[in-house]
Nucleic acid binder design. Structure first.
Lengths: 239, 239
DNA sequence: TTGGTATTGTGTATGGCTTACACATTATAT
DNA sequence: ATATAATGTGTAAGCCATACACAATACCAA
């Protein structure tokens, strides 16, 4: 009982096998947090026939580049950023998922700080969309987006990754409202603050919010030194 | 700024692009629990040059089959099983990960009940190996195995999937020892039992263990009706 | 300058869950 | 019959999660 993997690709090609009517792509779910909303960076569909639909940012993987390099390349080409949080989520490989042919795609999500990088994507067809308002996307991209968001929800309860979405200095309200918009819940303000101070993840930078029409909150930055993989971020369940 | 995804595969092929020197495979980490140990099903490497090394069970994805269908096919071809737990974990795509050429692989893990299916894999080069004794595997398969095991560890704390590894009727000791061998920890027996009874996930089938050289334990089966996605299985952390 | 407004900053009591821990019981084997 | 080896069971202590209210502060408008 043999499998195709027993042969080299050159052997397969000389046998005229059909394995090479496929292509592999990466798609990036690039998330940002702005105006108290979680937003995703979308582009008018790459394909002309789908040009009225928004799609994720993706490209084919090149034969000479690693899979993760491909996703970093897409991110860099589209946003100018390279030192950002990027994580693989899932690979989608249904036969008819893409109109251009058999394209299997690996989805990645990236968390970036919109405020500090707003200028970089002034060019071309890119726009930030509130994720809560997205009902349809091109191809199977809505499903990909949902999968990434679901993974993000699990992940933020285990690891302190939300700080990638915030500016270097942020208020506790911003932090709480970020957790709330990712989880779609309301949290108790006092317990939220207590929790984060107890975990010792925040450093008081001795500054106050500016330009707010009310009492300004203190600003903090993330205490990366304090991060240990064992600690959990679990917050309240309901409320 | 265009990407290769803007073109159909036929356009790309007529341009003689290099995207088609790649192939896509699936690799299955098939796990079982036997003699109080977690075991993985391995095969003598598919490639002759690596025939002294063990490898995971995999094959190329066919052009006309979905990605998940490919992993189910591999499982069915190798073990005869089809109604089993199988879940995608991660896609590995380093340029030089496979000696046969550019092969990107999607890893899956499967949880099966060895005892009830022992006969099916009498044929060929397959063998169960205790995962704790595995130090090297062919290609990057050790890395793939480790990734799957790590994912399994996280997963069993959130979802009641370990039952897939047990026979229909099992003792509490078997269940506890399964958790212990996946997590590599020791758990308190009384608290473990209390926890599971409290969650109401076990049904007493009014039978006792057979052929044990000591007082036999009661047998239970998993109460699938009681399963709600919200419940967590979190056990003690240390001990 | 004053009063109104909106949001920040703070503590405590309750209940539930987690943990640590010991001894009598039961089937088997000699 | 006796020794052996594992099963089956309960309670107390501490920690964590939750619910909840009021004073302080900065801005704004009159």
């Amino acid at each position: 009982m043999g499998t195709a993997l027993q042969k080299t690709i050159h052997q397969l090609k000389s046998e005229n096998r059909e394995f090479f009517h496929m292509a592999l792509s990466v798609d990036c779910v690039i998330l940002g947090f702005d105006e108290n909303e979680l937003k995703v960076l979308l582009i008018k569909s790459d394909l002309e026939e789908f040009s009225d639909q928004w799609s994720l940012l993706g490209d084919l993987v090149r034969p000479d580049e690693n899979l993760d390099s491909a996703s970093y390349r897409v991110l860099k080409e589209r946003t100018g950023l390279d030192d950002v949080f990027l994580e693989q989520v899932y690979t989608f490989g249904d036969v008819n998922r893409h109109p251009a042919g058999r394209v299997i795609t690996t989805a990645w999500y990236s968390l970036i700080n919109i405020k500090d990088h707003q200028m970089s994507l002034a060019h071309n067809e890119l726009h930030w969309h509130p994720v809560s308002e997205i009902t349809t996307l091109a191809f199977d991209h809505k499903k990909i987006l949902d999968t990434c968001l679901h993974q993000l929800q699990s992940k933020i309860d285990e690891h302190p990754i939300v700080f990638n979405l915030l500016p270097e200095k942020f208020s506790l309200r911003e932090l709480q409202s970020l957790y709330e918009s990712i989880h779609g819940t309301k949290l108790d303000r006092r317990n939220f603050r207590k929790k984060f101070f107890l975990m010792d993840w925040l450093i008081d930078v001795n500054e106050l919010e500016q330009d707010v029409p009310h009492r300004p909150g203190k600003l903090y930055r993330f205490n990366a030194d304090r991060f240990s993989d064992g600690k959990k971020v679990k917050l309240q369940e309901h409320a």
